[in-house]
Design a binder for these strands. Sequence first.
DNA 1: CTCGCGAATTAGCTGTAGCTAATCACCGTT
DNA 2: AACGGTGATTAGCTACAGCTAATTCGCGAG
Lengths: 234, 234
Amino acid sequence: MVKPRSRTKVALSRSRGDYLKALYVLAETEPDVAPSRLAARLAVSAPSVTNMLRRLAAEGLVARSRGAGARLTAAGRHEALILVRRHRILEAFLVRVLGLDWSDVHEDAEVLEHHVSDRVLDALDRLMAHPSEDPHGHPIPDRRGRLARRALRPLASLPRGARATVREIRDRDRRRMAAWKQSGLVPGARVRMCDVRALDDVYEVDVEGRRLVTGSEGLDGVLVEPRREGAHER
Amino acid sequence: MVKPRSRTKVALSRSRGDYLKALYVLAETEPDVAPSRLAARLAVSAPSVTNMLRRLAAEGLVARSRGAGARLTAAGRHEALILVRRHRILEAFLVRVLGLDWSDVHEDAEVLEHHVSDRVLDALDRLMAHPSEDPHGHPIPDRRGRLARRALRPLASLPRGARATVREIRDRDRRRMAAWKQSGLVPGARVRMCDVRALDDVYEVDVEGRRLVTGSEGLDGVLVEPRREGAHER
DNA sequence: CTCGCGAATTAGCTGTAGCTAATCACCGTT
DNA sequence: AACGGTGATTAGCTACAGCTAATTCGCGAG
């Protein structure tokens, strides 16, 4: 097909981008990403990972030190963030403009992020007046790939009685996402941790007035920003 | 990568779709499309065309009779029309919603038509209240691939003094398209053929009150619908 | 210090879709 | 009827990105 130029600004292939994004995401929990983790996340075989990492390393996008997995270089991280930006702008568009379901737009954005031109992306961004967050509450990196960093904590980590506001929903499974949406756990929702029984792994959370009782697994991926006591009660 | 299943509804690859669309368009001037014409239009080599036609024939999308070029089967024509529908809906979106330039959206639509899901396409269509034409005046096939056929004629074929309304702008070159836009030759524009000097290949056309003098080449691709004399003067 | 296990890598294939170079086929002249 | 030229096809390669099977590496246990 067409020749994908070397160093120049010619947009990576679908696969390359997916690897970079996965490296970016997985690096959050562990900076050195093992090939096996990449293979699992991308649903490809281990040899495929080895191969692709070799290519990406040759292009200066990832660094590999023997025995210590792979990590993004500055250039690689930049590429990843550009893709994250595209993804989130697209998700915002799909939900806010096209009215598609919040919990269901990931796949479409995943495909389109690799194919939409900068011109179209900018137009989408403009149409929405440059949103700062996607529909799941994730901040959108700016045009240069800079990301506002926020101090959020898992909902399950709130002490009994604490109030907070849901800020981000992190998950790749639309079924769980749909369930959260159902129970009101959406960005902006105000919550209060009513009861924590860590031994039984049971959490009782007040979500905008409705009572949610669930195990910690059912809260995994919901990030909140604690609210001061005495702030305006809803 | 992923396995592109056989007969089932799994959307053709980028290349396959491009061949089908080219066959569809080229068949308008000559039903049997010679491989060389395909090669020229798609900017690929002759052997590549032979190869791809073999594959498409094996899938029942094109028919090849020795010595007589290729033509779409009913199935192939349907696929082509579905792509045409996607393309035109996308162009309409890019212009009407995103405000991109009329003469400049072809390339983006060309890429996106292969990657947008039906769900998103339908949402775009809905957002625009199911447009019947794209920004160049081309009718949009319906969901089943049926296309309203219209009787239009080339602007250059109008006799001296005839009045008409521009309906379609057919061209793949954005420079020419931009030039037409500049001179007012856009779908809906009312024109009158003031003078034809066929020998010198000079045409003088009144476009919404402005005088345009050009050779026939400068009008090629502008299709009009003649207006009755005595219809309401502008 | 060696063994074995699991993770990583190498070897070698598959499929898509492009390419060039070489060959073949048909058609109109002479 | 033979010849040449245009255009189509075959042969054989390249690149990407995946795969399985086989091999190697590194590290902890004995």
